Simulated assay, not measured.
Amino acid sequence: MRDAELPQTLLEWYDRHARMMPWRTPPQDKCAGVRPDPYRVWLSEVMLQQTTVAAVRAYFHRFTERWPTVAQLAAAEDGDVMGEWAGLGYYARARNLLKCARAVAQDHGGVFPDTYAALLTLPGIGPYTAAAISSIAFDRAETVVDGNVERVMARLYAVQTPLPAAKSELTALAATLTPQDRPGDYAQAVMDLGATICTPKSPACGICPWQAPCKARAGGIQTDLPRKTPKKAKPTRLGIAYLARRSDGAWLLERRPDSGLLGGMLGWPGPVWGDAPVDAPPMLADWQRLNVEVRHTFTHFHLILALRVAEVPMDAAPDTGHFLTPVDFRPSDLPTVMRKAFDLAQGMT
């Protein structure tokens, strides 16, 4: 099979086997004239960054039910959006989501621009997301390369260079296959191929539409590719979370600064995480040490949080944060690490 034939072969496979996604316009619907909604494409691409499809589905449904259009999302309260995002991780995405929605609403009349270059000018949209939106939403012939596509290209062409050094080489190879006809469907087809057949472990080569031209399969090295440079061991940081509950059931919380890890999210007061925990309570109280700890892993480090709890009177005056009553406080609005602390404290007090 010649390289020129690969896109059409994959599109024929995609027409039969496309995954059903709440944000995707199926190929048969597109043939019937249904156009993808750029808002839903953009929202899904932001949510899917470093996150699995399975984890994103429920969040996508909640967001689109509560804010069906980019204009409605742009008008939302920051705290409401951050609360709905809680648990999905990588919280800078949520902050950029609001910035981008507001830029589209204010500067583009609520309509997403349809070119790669114009999309790149929007907050939070980088080269990958701009290529994905312009391709999938507007059928522009842009090359979309995620981890699935990198794996497919590495195996198809038996690229031995390890990732991440191989990224530019794999992107160049992917660009040679990007078709002018149905580029949006093709982009999704390659990603589907990597997600369902050309998987990291035990690829189903026997049913792959590209099995014949695959150089890695021919050499019996498909499970060895793509090669990856070993990652450095993650360091461990330590900290303390202080959970104070007032006599009316209100909890002391603080909203973290917009910049930095967990930016803009609610959380328990506590000192900066570092090599050793620093005892720095947010107020005078009879703090009790719990014989449990929160363990959580972020992208670049592991975290271990010691827990302190205290029951405080109605006139308690904290040095930081504010009390949220049971009516205003939803544990589901907490990021995962803070929710772990809450759940442990609830079980121990």
Score class of each variant (00 low, 15 high):
residue 267 G to H: 13
residue 251 W to P: 06
residue 236 T to R: 15
residue 256 R to S: 02
residue 249 G to S: 05
residue 293 E to V: 12
residue 278 V to W: 03
residue 272 V to D: 00
residue 255 R to V: 13
residue 260 G to H: 06
residue 302 H to N: 15
residue 256 R to Y: 15
residue 303 L to Y: 12
residue 237 R to V: 13
residue 251 W to A: 02
residue 236 T to N: 13
residue 241 A to E: 05
residue 296 H to T: 06
residue 265 M to A: 13
residue 293 E to P: 06
residue 298 F to I: 07
residue 285 A to N: 02
residue 247 S to H: 10
residue 252 L to P: 07
residue 249 G to Q: 05
residue 238 L to E: 12
residue 288 Q to A: 04
residue 232 K to G: 13
residue 233 A to L: 10
residue 269 P to A: 05
residue 300 H to N: 09
residue 270 G to K: 10
residue 230 P to C: 01
residue 228 K to G: 00
residue 261 L to H: 11
residue 243 L to H: 03
residue 291 N to F: 00
residue 271 P to V: 00
residue 252 L to V: 07
residue 236 T to M: 15
residue 297 T to M: 11
residue 248 D to P: 12
residue 230 P to N: 03
residue 261 L to K: 10
residue 275 D to H: 14
residue 242 Y to M: 02
residue 300 H to Y: 11
residue 299 T to S: 12
residue 230 P to S: 04
residue 239 G to R: 10
residue 246 R to A: 00
residue 239 G to K: 07
residue 239 G to Q: 05
residue 239 G to M: 02
residue 253 L to F: 14
residue 237 R to Q: 06
residue 301 F to Y: 14
residue 280 A to H: 04
residue 303 L to F: 14
residue 283 M to D: 01
residue 293 E to L: 04
residue 238 L to H: 15
residue 250 A to I: 03
residue 241 A to L: 13
residue 267 G to N: 10
